[in-house]
Design a protein around this nucleic acid. Structure first.
Length: 534
RNA sequence: GCUCCCGUGGUGUAGUCCGGCCAAUCAUUCUGGCCUUUCGAGCCAGCUACACGGGUUCGAAUCCCGUCGGGAGCACCA
């Protein structure tokens, strides 16, 4: 508009006067007029939102490299899944490379079993990596770079106590070690590596008065005299996260490293280190941690529960670990969908589990077989019951799932809660079978056969015959409420399932009609269910 | 205390960089209806949001200043 010589200032008054005129016309005439002039403006079309991740800055097809850098110190949870999925997804979108890197530079944390366990978790998520390595395998290179920093006098050895260092950093005061020359530091560094000196650390010469406290001469290397799960006693000087993370991202060619936003303050340190080392600088991106309401992710909260037996282990269905989610019948595809829906914003938020459930339901509803499970069963007798051999489909729409055949007599079991809703004289339908009329409600419920025609609006409830299978379904609830462990977080629903569930195998996810989606597990020949969601 | 990040309906999220196409997206939840031999799915409708206060501008969710609220960091843990 301005290009054509008009300015908004000139046009706005004209527009305003026209609006006044148009508004004087009755609404229905306005609509009629618009219908003639531009009918397309009257339709409001629904926009579809796609859940692809936003474009990456400085990204070129074929040249994007991402990485997922877990510390092998536990099983992966939904938070890891977010990082891994985002990393993996970007590499895929840009035809790039995705690296799995174990950040195992603290022998006190790294544990041998978790290298493989985490890979299993990733494979279950259907995440494949193009390259895999351990940061601990690059230690010699880290040492070389450390020495480079010392030679440049950009780092120095500090032998002060933790307390002194803390104090100095807090008040922005240098310690005496800061005056160490590069010669001094190099000698002390060699001592760290080769002798049994204790307590020395290598510190970056940052800025002890910097507003960003992460820059107040952060620790780059420290001594940890503990055998490493992969390298044993070979090394005792280990890089900290600040050093190892920056260096590894750079030298392994990562172009777009992602991390959670609690590291944001360390960005400055990250880039300063790479500057001093004359290494390539990747494009760092931070996002908020992902947390699900009532399902804590932190080890601080989960570990005690495992140790005191409040939960069965890291695969407890109340936990947001990948193993826990798997156990309750959440599919990896649903987790991926859920994560991508959340995107990579920096807003700290707590998401309801129903978003996970919705994603999962969308996938399993069309393919999950339906079965009858009767919670808190009561006996139901049908007078004049015709003996039937009835074939009932496993799915209302998806006929390829087949059917089962049930032989019925006059004894059934139905849910106590359903019977409470009905009174003597009511007619309801044994779902898939026929109608019955309630005659008496005592300990058992006495009914009589009441025709087979469908009665619109009547209750249709699930049932079993007297050939039932006793089983329990475990239902998870919030494990933490207001920062407190919820002792009622695991509910057990006991009841009778129809005989056909005996043919189910471990890991099958079915729907118990009017109950919910349940993953089946055969434990010691006893069939058990784990509740996923409604 | 200091520094940094964040603030869009009940819950998430798009839009914020680069002001106008935003009487604000999509999902989920909830409510009502339709449909259905499930309380599931599907379909339709509805509710509810730019934290607050100033400023800049013809025009602000978007830019500036301030306030408030939430989070993070101030580790020899990542």
């Amino acid at each position: 508009m301005q290009k054509e010589g008009f300015s908004p200032k000139e046009i706005i008054p004209i527009v305003n006067s026209v609006i006044v005129k148009v508004n004087k016309i009755p609404l229905n005439k306005q609509i009629a007029e618009l219908e003639k002039l531009a009918p397309e403006l009257l339709k409001k079309e629904k926009k579809e939102r796609d859940f692809t991740l936003p474009k990456l800055l400085n990204a070129e097809k074929g040249k994007v490299v991402t990485r997922f850098p877990p510390e092998p110190n536990g099983y992966l949870h939904i938070g890891h899944a977010k990082a891994a999925i985002v990393d993996h997804e970007y590499a895929r979108i840009y035809d790039g490379k995705f690296i799995l890197r174990f950040d195992d530079t603290n022998p006190e944390n790294a544990q041998i079993e978790f290298y493989e366990a985490q890979k299993e978790d990733l494979r279950w998520l259907k995440i494949e990596w193009d390259e895999e390595f351990n940061t601990s395998d690059h230690l010699e290179e880290h040492y070389r770079l450390a020495e480079q920093l010392i030679k440049q006098d950009d780092a120095y050895i500090c032998v002060c106590s933790t307390e002194e260092i803390k104090h100095g950093r807090f008040h922005g005061k240098e310690c005496n070690c800061c005056g160490n020359t590069c010669g001094d530091s190099m000698d002390l560094w060699k001592d760290m590596l080769n002798s049994s000196v204790e307590g020395s650390i290598l510190r970056l010469r940052g800025d002890i008065t910097c507003d960003n406290t992460a820059m107040r001469d952060p620790t780059l290397f420290r001594i940890i005299d503990k055998p490493h799960p992969l390298h044993g006693d070979k090394y005792r000087v280990w890089p900290t996260y600040d050093f190892a993370g920056a260096v590894e991202d750079s030298i392994s060619g990562v172009t777009h490293p992602f991390r959670t936003k609690e590291y944001e303050l360390r960005d400055e340190c990250y880039f300063k280190l790479l500057d001093l080392l004359k290494l390539r600088k990747p494009h760092l991106i931070e996002f908020a941690r992902l947390s699900i309401e009532g399902m804590p992710v932190s080890k601080r909260k989960i570990k005690p529960l495992i140790e005191n037996g409040s939960v069965s282990g890291y695969d407890d269905i109340r936990l947001p670990t990948l193993r826990g989610l798997k156990k309750r019948g959440i599919l990896p595809e649903a987790i991926k969908q859920f994560v991508l829906e959340q995107g990579i914003s920096k807003v700290e938020s707590s998401v309801t589990f129903s978003l996970v459930a919705a994603a999962n339901r969308k996938i399993i509803d069309p393919i999950a077989k339906r079965y009858f499970f009767v919670k808190d069963p009561v006996k139901l007798i049908v007078e004049n019951a015709p003996e039937k051999i009835k074939e009932i489909n496993f799915h209302p729409i998806n006929k390829t799932l087949g059917s089962r055949t049930v032989k019925t007599g006059k004894t059934f079991f139905v849910q106590n809660s359903d019977m409470k809703e009905l009174k003597v004289g009511d007619i309801f339908r044994l779902k898939g079978l026929y109608n019955v009329k309630i005659k008496e409600k005592n300990k058992d419920v006495l009914t009589e056969y009441a025709d087979e025609n469908l009665i619109p609006g009547s209750a249709k409830i699930q049932w079993t015959t007297d050939k039932f299978v006793e089983m329990s379904v475990f239902i998870p609830h919030f494990i933490y409420i207001d920062e407190k462990y919820n002792a009622d977080s695991l509910e057990r629903a006991d009841g009778f399932a129809e005989e056909a569930v005996l043919k189910l195998k471990t890991d099958e996810i079915v729907q118990f009609e009017r109950f919910g989606f349940v993953r089946i597990e055969n434990i010691d020949d006893k069939i058990t269910g784990f509740f996923a969601h409604k």
